[in-house]
Amino acid sequence: MPLLEDGRLRPDDWTHVEDEAPLPEGPAIVSLARLRAEAASLAGRNAPLGVALPPETQPEEIAPFLDRLALIAVKMPKSKDGRAFTQIRALREHHGFAGEIRAAGHILPDQYAMLLRCGVTTVEVPEGTKPETWARSRDTIRIAYQAAQGADRPLSLLRRKLELA
């Protein structure tokens, strides 16, 4: 599946790994169940490790593993289901997670700017997606009225210009 970062498509080095499947050599995203079951052996691997965080799981539950994780994939089962926004913000704000946060599932370009403001890094987009639509949507509204993640300073004015990359 194509991967979007900074409004452009980029190659994806990560592999989503099924629970029963053997782990590949390179960067791998495993399920939460597998992460829990095989924590010790996964930690011994030499390649970067990621986990898929289900929408109903609170980020606290993966707190013990965070220092071993390079990527967390959140999922939007439907574009209207906004739980991921709170998960992403909590990962950045409460857990100080600095790795890649990737959003997958049914996501609209119109949600891109908000995902970025909550702290997302990359978005898995459907085949044939026009990245320009995402970039345009991100850039349409350059003003925000509230504090969020990313390059934010403490709230010094209720409104400010967005300083997104």
């Binding site: 926004f85 908000m114 995902l115 509204i141 009225y145 509230q146 209720l158």
Partner: peptide, 10 residues
Amino acid sequence: WSTLHPEFTW
């Protein structure tokens, strides 16, 4: 504060 709030629009 609530206008286009990035976390609370969905």
